[in-house]
Measured scan of single mutants.
Amino acid sequence: MSIQHFRVALIPFFAAFCLPVFAHPETLVKVKDAEDQLGARVGYIELDLNSGKILESFRPEERFPMMSTFKVLLCGAVLSRVDAGQEQLGRRIHYSQNDLVEYSPVTEKHLTDGMTVRELCSAAITMSDNTAANLLLTTIGGPKELTAFLHNMGDHVTRLDRWEPELNEAIPNDERDTTMPAAMATTLRKLLTGELLTLASRQQLIDWMEADKVAGPLLRSALPAGWFIADKSGAGERGSRGIIAALGPDGKPSRIVVIYTTGSQATMDERNRQIAEIGASLIKHW
């Protein structure tokens, strides 16, 4: 067993022997301040990774656009098919120029040779490549099948209805392509620590998230040296922004954090800054 596999296998073990965790309302004060600064709703939840206990939450059962955070769930569904012998990570998928959609920095470079399922998941999570996500959605049967996968996990809230990039439209009061912070946090925890996926697939999923290259201005910008984070960000229309993450000190994750916002007129930089400040408060009061 590799060191990384050992780390993920012992996530519940280490967490069980940690000192009790206590909620700190100071972080919620910052979440509410972010709402004021952005002029928009902000949803927040913080779960203990081992027990699933909610440590703090704000608007945990209000719907927010998922945006690209759905790509972690998508690759979880792909990995479940791999575990069941219905898919192979090494299978190569070929596609054409007509398949390319807006923001496809990886797939646009491989029109000639195609990409493997493993490479597509890596591109979808680490670079948020939209064509990679659409190609992977095709392998599982489309958005409705991802929703069905989530329902089978016990998540009857999260739903995907459309493809990239239309799913980022974020129309107010439109339930399409949305989740709730509580539902997303619980589902992410199941994917990373539950028995739904094999140990190898859980490790692969967290490795992809740990290698995320496009979430630097968010929670990662607030992390002290030595902290662990595996995350996936999302951005959408109407001032929408979000991030889902597993993080913790001492090089291992111990909490799940989900943050979503929508309806702001603020710039992307300002949305990023507010999420980073929430992260800084979380870490300060850990």
Rank of each mutant, 00 (worst) to 15 (best):
L150P: 00
L199N: 07
T158G: 10
I140R: 02
E56A: 11
L188V: 13
S51A: 06
S96Q: 04
R118C: 02
W286T: 03
A200P: 04
Q204N: 04
A211N: 13
I244E: 11
E270H: 15
S233K: 12
E237H: 01
G216Q: 04
K71V: 15
G263F: 04
L79M: 02
F58V: 03
W286S: 03
L282M: 12
D212F: 00
D36W: 03
D155M: 14
Q203R: 05
G141T: 02
G52R: 10
V258I: 07
E46S: 04
R255M: 07
A211G: 08
N134F: 07
R273G: 13
E270D: 14
L79G: 03
K53A: 10
E270W: 00
R271D: 14
V82C: 01
A280P: 09
G234D: 14
E270K: 15
R159W: 09
L218I: 13
L160W: 06
T69Y: 09
L49R: 01
T116S: 11
L55F: 11
L28F: 12
A77P: 08
K232G: 14
S51Y: 06
G263T: 00
E270F: 15
T139I: 12
A276T: 15
M268H: 15
M115C: 01
L146V: 08
H24W: 10
T187L: 03
A170G: 08
I140W: 01
E169C: 00
H24M: 11
P60W: 04
S128D: 15
R41L: 11
A183Y: 02
E169M: 05
E61H: 09
T126V: 11
A123M: 04
C75N: 00
A276R: 12
L38W: 00
C121W: 00
K32M: 07
S281N: 15
G251N: 13
H110L: 01
T267D: 05
L191K: 10
A200M: 10
E210V: 13
V214I: 01
P105M: 04
L137F: 00
G263S: 01
M127E: 12
N152P: 05
Q204V: 10
D99H: 11
L188S: 15
G43I: 10
Y44M: 03
S254F: 12
A148G: 08
F228I: 12
G76V: 06
G90N: 05
H151I: 09
I171D: 01
E145D: 10
M209Q: 09
T193W: 09
P165L: 01
I229T: 10
T198F: 08
A77L: 13
D83Y: 02
R81F: 01
T126N: 13
L191Q: 11
L223H: 06
L150M: 13
R118A: 12
R159T: 05
D250G: 10
Q86I: 14
V29W: 03
A230T: 11
V157I: 14
T198Y: 03
Y44A: 02
D161W: 07
G263L: 04
A133S: 07
K232T: 14
E145Q: 15
N173W: 10
G251P: 10
K213P: 12
I256G: 13
I243Q: 07
E237A: 00
V258D: 02
D33H: 08
T27D: 03
E166L: 13
I229G: 13
Q204M: 12
K213A: 07
N173P: 00
M209A: 05
R63M: 07
Q204F: 01
G251Q: 12
V101A: 15
H151K: 10
P181S: 03
P224F: 14
E237F: 14
D48H: 12
S80K: 14
L38G: 01
N50C: 01
F70W: 15
L73A: 09
G226N: 13
E61A: 01
P165H: 02
